[in-house]
């Protein structure tokens, strides 16, 4: 690519492109470029204050039987539902074959606290918030495109592909949970 250059002692102008030193310099330049670019990209990852709000605690005694409370966690709604015994029964006896996304009710609650359901309140279709208690299965109904969820938050009818998501949570005491 470089034209040959006239020099006084006739050598050196056509430096060999394959000289190790040039490859080393080029490699170091690529390394330097990566070192410059990485912090810029990493700065777009969640910042320390966003990560600190990753967990919240909630007092379960605020929920009445048969009702739900909606709280905000990480910018999204979370349903905390206190199920009646009838609702729990309906969820437990539902056959796996009737479920689009088979999952036992027992896998969606914590042992000893099966009356409480903690679910992310976004429809797994396109994200709308389903309405409480509506729909054909007594759970939730999403008005946007007609997804029906049962009393365990599992999808039964409609375009949603999967059950309402159970977030990571744990019981700190009988009446207090930590989400996230």
């Amino acid at each position: 690519m470089a034209e040959s250059v006239e020099t006084e002692n006739g050598e050196g102008g056509d430096a060999s492109r394959r000289d190790f030193i040039h490859i080393a310099a080029g490699a170091a330049a690529v390394g330097a470029g990566a070192m410059l670019v990485w912090p810029l990209i990493n700065s777009m990852n969640p910042a320390a204050d966003t990560l600190a709000l990753a967990s919240i605690e909630f007092d379960m005694s605020k929920v009445q039987e048969g009702q739900q409370v909606v709280i905000k966690w990480q910018g999204k709604p979370v349903f905390v539902r206190y199920r009646t015994p009838r609702e729990i029964q309906e969820a437990v006896v539902a056959p796996m074959s009737a479920l689009k996304d088979p999952q036992a009710d027992g896998d969606r609650i914590k042992a000893g606290h099966q009356q409480y359901l903690v679910l992310l309140g976004n429809c797994t279709h396109l994200g709308c918030i389903p309405t409480f208690g509506a729909g054909d299965f007594g759970g939730w109904f999403c008005p946007c495109h007609g997804s029906h969820y049962d009393t365990s938050g599992r999808i039964r009818k409609g375009p949603a592909p999967t059950n309402l998501v159970v977030p990571e949570y744990a019981y700190l005491s009988d009446t207090r949970i930590k989400i996230g």
Binding site: E8, E11, G12, G13, H22, A24, A25, A28
Partner: peptide, 14 residues
């Protein structure tokens, strides 16, 4: 490294 590369390239060029 870059200086060595530079010298190599310019070697012999007045």
């Amino acid at each position: 490294i870059t200086y060595l590369s530079y010298r190599r390239i310019w070697k012999g060029v007045a």
